[in-house]
Design a protein around this nucleic acid. Structure first.
Lengths: 363, 363
DNA sequence: TTGTAGGCGTTATCAC
DNA sequence: GTGATAACGCCTACAA
């Protein structure tokens, strides 16, 4: 391994000078800096991240921790985040939380919060308060976190407006009995109605029903225990087999993956989409465009999502630099939260989206 | 941040004792060790990875660097790798190489080879020799790397046998004119025929054709500049529009993503699968099961792939420890078996696979 | 069985 | 402008 000392020796200067020069400190003479850069280049020098991180607390890495890397939406989102992180001059790393709480904690404790200058996290089981403790004062932006009393910045998908648009579209094309696949009707009574993704998407649906003058009951909702392909496919059988849903002619599935699996379930029974049942999904994954029939969906603009997320995160990272530098009196990060020179209130943004109309609702 | 000193103070011992105890060194008395563990637990102590890595060169992290995280196959593969890495007690991190050579180099230089005890890499543009330099002596296992003179261990998909099975299956169900989508017929003259994924898959196809007594010419191959959805969809139009392929009745696409896009292209023109044209893919992504019609495919067993990959990698990591430390009596059982302090020759394994027959070839 | 001490490569605080 | 020098938190020979 070639270290800073090697570069210093090659350039005939001290280690300190190398450090300054490579980091672009203006105090170093241009000629010296150039000489040092060339020496570094020739030796294929690369700063040791562990050493830098140990000494300065900064690594140049931004971490993305996400649930289920093997599903289309999370993986396309991670890819978009990775690209945007790289574009901002940071190194992206992605981690899979697999949905278990221990896993999420482990990842944050062991890797992300230690190694990363900032984190992008899609919280599953861990509460905001726990996250605060796990973040070690490092900046973090949450995805689709709607907790009533937010601790971190977050960027959300357009749950309400998007879902409302989906249901409205089904009604517009003439559906008389629209069924929403995902939530249970009982959800209405749940106190998480306003603070969870499913609750907010359901709220959007209800708004659309109401605006269209449609009375809603349990037969407008087909609950899904897990938002996975197999239960979603079987949900289609349930819909077809139950008297409650027999005249259903329009279905809104809360994710594209559910929609595509549901569509497969309909195909298993020979039900035609959109002729017999029209179908709308949510997310706008690539797969939705290539399905047969292609899927109408509420597409989240992932590039916009990534851009907004990194705007927030990098602002916080830069703010932290100023803060940490003066931070001689221990880790004030926590207790000074409501004080002066400290971060403003958590922001909450929504990513751009659009309803993409395709064959599954073409009538 | 709570350091080892804090734990030492809380437990009333020295830092060294804490280090030994937490790493399970048998020299520490059981009672002392337990006391230390409890103190660490209570203080929520977590070893600082940067410090550990700087001092010992080991971080407990294994990195996966892969091309295009937003495609189904790579993302499902990364997820399988992540799970297996975690199962072995390491922390997984995933990075997207995006296919550019600079990117691959950057990732290896700046992050992976520095931070990780071992790497799993799916090489795109970088040659084996360059990789050797970039690896900094850290163990690495390559995926689907078929270079004639391998430097690293690798685990491959069953390119030849899998492709042969795909083509054979199309012939078995009665296809008279099978077209392989992906490679160009000119590939045969290419010197990378034996050392690239596309070349080896093509070799498998040729074997199946030959065994079936089918004469092959350019009309059995439909080249694809990029293995992406849009060109694949358009390839279907090309197939239908060209006289060369007019009587094609069976198609083998070199990946599932190509197959599904191609199938979409056929649907655009009202061509029925499998009635008019039968279709086989390669990979076995989840999506292939939910497509309509469901896609017959050469499924790679990703769990098996991950298992074999980590068997190789962790062996090398442990061997490296033996080499680096002066650990005389160490677990020589593994590494000192053959030869001296030098690693054995690169191994090359193939992941389990199966031909999954589905609707797209049901006749 | 446990403590002491030195150093991993970098950055930051001083002098010069 | 540049160069010594001291940490950052941990690991590990060696001493006790």
């Amino acid at each position: 391994m070639v270290t800073m000392s090697d570069v210093a020796k090659a350039a005939g200067v001290s280690r300190a000078t190398v450090s300054y020069a490579l980091r672009g400190d203006p105090r170093i003479a241009a000629a010296t800096a150039e000489k040092i850069r060339q020496a570094a280049q020739k030796l294929h020098y690369n700063a040791n991240i562990s050493a830098r991180s140990l000494r300065s607390g900064r690594s140049g890495i931004i971490g993305v921790a996400i649930y289920e890397l093997d599903r289309p939406y999370p993986s396309e989102m991670s890819a978009a985040m990775s690209r945007e992180i790289a574009r901002r001059g940071y190194q992206p790393i992605v981690q899979q939380t697999s949905g278990s709480k221990d896993d999420e904690i482990m990842i944050l404790q062991k890797v992300t919060s230690q190694l990363c200058d900032g984190m992008i996290f899609s919280p599953g089981q861990v509460s905001d308060e726990e996250l605060r403790a796990l973040s070690h004062g490092k900046p973090m932006v949450l995805l689709d976190d709607i907790s009533p009393d937010p601790v971190f910045d977050s960027v959300n998908t357009a749950c309400e407006d998007g879902s409302a648009a989906a249901v409205r579209h089904l009604i517009d094309i003439g559906c008389k009995h629209v069924v929403v696949v995902g939530p249970s009707y009982d959800m209405l009574l749940d106190d998480k109605m306003a603070s969870s993704v499913v609750g907010r998407r359901m709220t959007g649906c209800l708004r659309a029903f109401e605006e269209a003058g449609v009375d809603v009951d349990a037969s407008n909702f087909l609950p899904l225990e897990h938002w996975d392909p197999i239960p979603a496919r079987e949900a289609a059988y349930r819909l077809l087999d139950s008297d409650d849903y027999r005249d259903a002619d329009g279905v809104f599935c809360m994710t594209d993956t559910i929609a595509i699996s549901f569509m497969r379930g309909l195909a298993d029974r020979g039900v035609r989409v959109p002729d017999d049942i029209a179908l709308v999904g949510f997310d706008g994954v690539t797969e939705s465009e290539y399905a047969v029939p292609s899927l109408t969906t509420v597409r989240t603009d992932l590039d916009d999502l990534a851009r907004r997320t990194l705007d927030l995160l990098i602002d916080r990272i830069n703010a932290n630099v100023g803060g940490v530098g003066i931070d001689a009196a221990g880790d004030a990060g926590d207790n000074a939260g409501d004080g002066l020179a400290f971060p403003d209130a958590p922001q909450r943004l929504t990513a751009a989206w659009e309803l993409v109309k395709r064959e599954s609702t073409r009538r």
